[in-house]
């Protein structure tokens, strides 16, 4: 099978390009997505190819273009809305929570909201306390939404079309540190399943459960743990809402230990939810308490050494996993 060398960024761009070609109802809108090519260069070149009707720069108002995306979706279009980062999505929270997520219910089933919202998430780029949030766990709290976190090239390439085909509103969180990730994809790579978690590395001793930008760190930790004789399984959640309980529980039932790696703040986090589900459904399978590696509960520091200290790191994952397996944590 022929393959192409690509990056996470290019894979998303190719997915957008494919969607624009396949379906005339699809258009992309957001801040600086046109000539500028998006603040993370995801839509670079698309304006020349598809024109300003389909690659739309919007006025600087998240609430306006998310709300317009909802309206356009109900008006028969298939909009892809790009919010520059999750931090700015707070300005559209009412549109996302009170409107996109509820309109099917409030219309008695008359209106699905086939809207896809993409946004960058995560820290690690020294963008300080107001531009480094990982709030996907908040969105995963909301019934009516589907929340995706592509962590691989395959998912960057394949989740968008599946999201566009979904009749419900879908939020896609792209971790900023993943954009430059390079690798190969099959030349015919396309839509992927968006309902199931994936085992990215099989193992017997401990389940490392993670998603998005924390996947590379967790895989690194698993590799280093293997060198010391600990065989870690790595689960990539992929879908943060709904969660694929079956894959999580099957893994924990086999390894009897779980560490959840989640860049969100620890209290009330997605990691807390997964921990609760494991406790509810696999309590008697466990050989050790469920552990969490999350971000420090502080506004994200600007200084590099402080930011790195605040974020989940492979070293921390290794220390925590080792403690669970050897009982010396």
């Amino acid at each position: 099978m022929s393959t192409v060398t690509t990056t996470y960024r290019e894979a998303i761009r190719e997915a957008i390009r494919e969607a624009l070609r396949r379906d005339p109802r699809v258009f992309l809108m957001g801040e600086d997505v046109g000539a500028y090519g998006g603040c993370f260069a995801v839509s670079k070149g698309l304006l020349d190819e598809f024109g300003p009707e389909r690659i739309r720069d919007t006025p600087l108002s998240e609430s306006a273009f998310v709300g317009a995306g909802i309206g356009a979706a109900l008006g028969g279009m298939r909009p892809i809305v790009e919010i520059m980062t999750v931090n700015f999505s707070l300005l559209a929270l009412d549109q996302i929570l009170n409107n996109a997520a509820t309109l099917l219910h409030m219309s008695g089933g008359q209106f699905n909201v086939p809207l896809v919202i993409r946004m960058t998430t995560g820290g690690g780029r020294q963008l300080a306390a107001q531009h480094s949030h990982s709030l996907e766990g908040w969105y995963a709290h909301i019934p009516g939404l589907r929340v995706l976190a592509p962590a691989t090239l395959e998912d960057a390439r394949g989740m968008l079309w599946s999201a566009l085909e979904d009749p419900d509103p879908v939020l896609i969180f792209e971790h900023a540190l993943l954009y430059n990730q390079a690798g190969t994809l099959p030349a015919d790579a396309g839509a992927v399943d968006i309902r199931r978690a994936r085992v990215r590395r099989p193992g017997r001793d401990v389940s490392l459960i993670t998603y998005g930008g924390s996947l590379p760190k967790t895989l690194e930790a698993a590799g280093r743990l293997a060198a010391e004789g600990i065989d870690a399984e790595v689960i990539d959640l992929r879908s943060l809402r709904p969660l694929d309980d079956a894959t999580i529980l099957a893994s924990v039932a086999a390894t009897r230990r779980a560490v959840i790696v989640d860049e969100g703040w620890r209290s009330g986090s997605l990691a807390a939810e997964i921990s609760a589900r494991i406790m509810e459904n696999a309590f008697y399978e466990l050989d050790a308490p469920v552990a969490r590696v999350c971000s420090a509960e502080v506004p994200m520091p600007y200084a590099r050494h402080l930011e790195q200290a605040a974020l989940p790191q492979a070293d921390t994952v290794i220390r925590v996993a080792r403690g669970l397996v050897r009982g010396d944590g």
């Binding site: 273009f65 998310v66 317009a68 995306g69 309206g71 356009a72 008006g75 279009m77 909009p79 549109q95």
Partner: peptide
Amino acid sequence: LTHAAGVAAAF
């Protein structure tokens, strides 16, 4: 009102 703008944009 923003939804209405989106509907209008679709038209």
